[in-house]
Design a protein around this nucleic acid. Structure first.
Lengths: 309, 309
DNA sequence: CATTTGCTGAAAGGATTTTTCACGGGGGAG
DNA sequence: CTCCCCCGTGAAAAATCCTTTCAGCAAATG
């Protein structure tokens, strides 16, 4: 059979359902029955095999084959493919925002929860990306490059972000230190001097310890960069440069979940941008740190998968 | 097999190509061959039957079946349907894969970088969500509920995730402890006993210390839950329950950035699901911990924004 | 070097789809 | 009014396609 290219390939979204609708008048009895079965629940149909569809429409297998051919497909599988493609195309267009914006309720199923949480996480990332001011971002990169040392500060959730930030900066062979409480920051306040950077990370921008730390470093002439969600806050007034995140926390998410993910995204962007700045230097630094990890991994870093499930 | 509706029904546009990409590292020889065949010309693949694909990739029919199953589908037809749906969805969205899949280049502008990084982060989240097996997820929740104590383990990046996880679980008044190196875990190995849970977090699933820790706790009769990106790895073989993430690391992202975000998403989902389980109890626990934070915040937790930039 | 482990593809086995064919109802010609 | 032809229909056979099993073999392990 030399004639390979299927209808699917020719017409990516041929809107099968509409095609069926338009042909409804010219169908025979059994064809109409099949058509109705499909139109009634297209999604369900797309998961049925030919026998099931025949039974469901109270017709026969052969009729389904004929039906598929009548519509211009080479057979049932091809029709089904077209239907699947069609449906997924449609579902991509109409996103069910209402459902997802409502927050978690006691009756939500596990898949509802997963869908809602991930949607809001993904959303936080995208909104943050849109919100980043390129000019500020660029300035921050430049300041980072010039700084001999970078201090990072955050509490709890934001503290993990700070630590993550530190490990990434170190990987780029950039000197950085993360503090996750006020007193340790004060203890080593002397590591930052004029020309260095202090990065404060806080969702609300009102956390007392963070604001206090910012003030202390500012007095020493250290440049203050802030990663925060609030447009206005004590922290914002103190900072020299502010990068805003855009995360909305809902009922069950007061653990600053989405905000933390948005913060991490900012960190990612900053690090990648920094890395790009001195491409060649970075490459080798990355290789170095990766090599170090390999050595430590020792015995079986040459592992190759061998099956099982 | 009473096992519910197919993958296709659950996830209308499960980015199959992305999924394959993310697993490229953990594939066997024949699987890699098949993957390359598909990635090289997905559209063409979507019109092939299993025999053609086997021939085209110079492997065997059985390998293609295994490949499909490895990706989480019930068989080849299901994989093909997912692929078809995926492709038509992409063409509908005018997908610019080349731009985004190419990794960061020295000539990318800052906005390019931001777009690429956030795209891949957001994508990691979405792919992970689509990949989570509800049955396993549910089982894990139940085990968490029953456990008197939960141990969390991860190194570096994954360690931050473990710590974050701990703080969230504690917030839900669930006893949990995070370890970020092998020796501290061994020192307090006795805190977990039969009926408790040990959660290992590792992107590759091959990190020696993590695998060793899993083994030690497993010997004590502790239930092992694993959060990882690889479908197969020493860690996977050891674990009782595996929750897969779906993150692809590109050139400048070897700091396990996207994977860490995917892991955090899983953590979010688990915590929210746990919280929902005992709604009323959680509410008060959350209120409690929030109140505690407020008290500590002390002096100006009543601050109201007043302007500034 | 023996042993285990587990990937691989050929072939058997099972499922699904397509084709063939006989049945039977409806309409037109004799 | 009856016979015959046409054609829609579904059961069953045939073909195709997919899945499972099994033996061989290569790599890793002790």
């Amino acid at each position: 059979m030399a004639k390979q290219l299927s209808v699917v390939a020719h017409t990516p979204h041929s809107n099968v359902l509409e095609l069926i609708q338009s042909q409804l008048g010219s169908f025979h009895a059994s064809e109409t029955a099949i058509a109705n079965s499909i139109l009634k629940d297209p999604t369900r149909t797309s998961t049925m095999n030919i026998t099931q569809l025949a039974t469901h429409s109270k017709t026969s297998v052969s009729s389904v084959v004929r039906f598929s051919k009548t519509l211009g497909f080479r057979g049932y599988p091809e029709f089904k493919m077209a239907l699947v493609g069609d449906l997924s195309w449609k579902s991509a267009k109409q996103f069910d925002t209402e459902f997802l914006d409502g927050g978690i309720t006691p009756t939500d199923s596990l898949s509802d929860i997963i869908e809602k949480v991930t949607y809001s996480d993904a959303r936080a990332i995208e909104s943050t990306a849109e919100k980043i001011d390129i000019a500020t971002f660029k300035k921050v990169i430049e300041i980072f490059e010039k700084a001999k040392m970078i201090g990072l500060f955050g509490l709890v959730s934001s503290g993990f972000v700070a630590m993550d930030f530190q490990s990434k900066l170190n990987r780029l062979s950039k000197r950085a230190i993360a503090w996750t409480d006020f007193h340790s920051a004060m203890t080593s306040i002397a590591v930052l001097e004029k020309g260095d950077v202090f990065v404060a990370i806080t969702h609300s921008g009102t956390t007392v310890d963070t604001v206090d730390a910012m003030r202390e470093f500012k007095e020493r002439g250290v440049t203050i960069v802030l990663i925060t969600n609030a447009m206005r806050s004590p922290a914002v007034s103190l900072a020299d440069y502010v990068i805003h995140t855009a995360a909305r926390e809902t009922t069950f998410r007061s653990g600053a979940t989405a905000s933390r993910i948005a913060q991490l995204t900012v960190v990612d962007c900053l690090c990648v941008a920094l890395a790009q700045r001195n491409w060649s230097g970075t490459k080798s630094a990355l290789d170095l740190s990766r090599a170090a990890v390999s050595i430590r991994s020792g015995k079986n870093h040459t592992y190759r998968p061998r099956g099982g499930n």
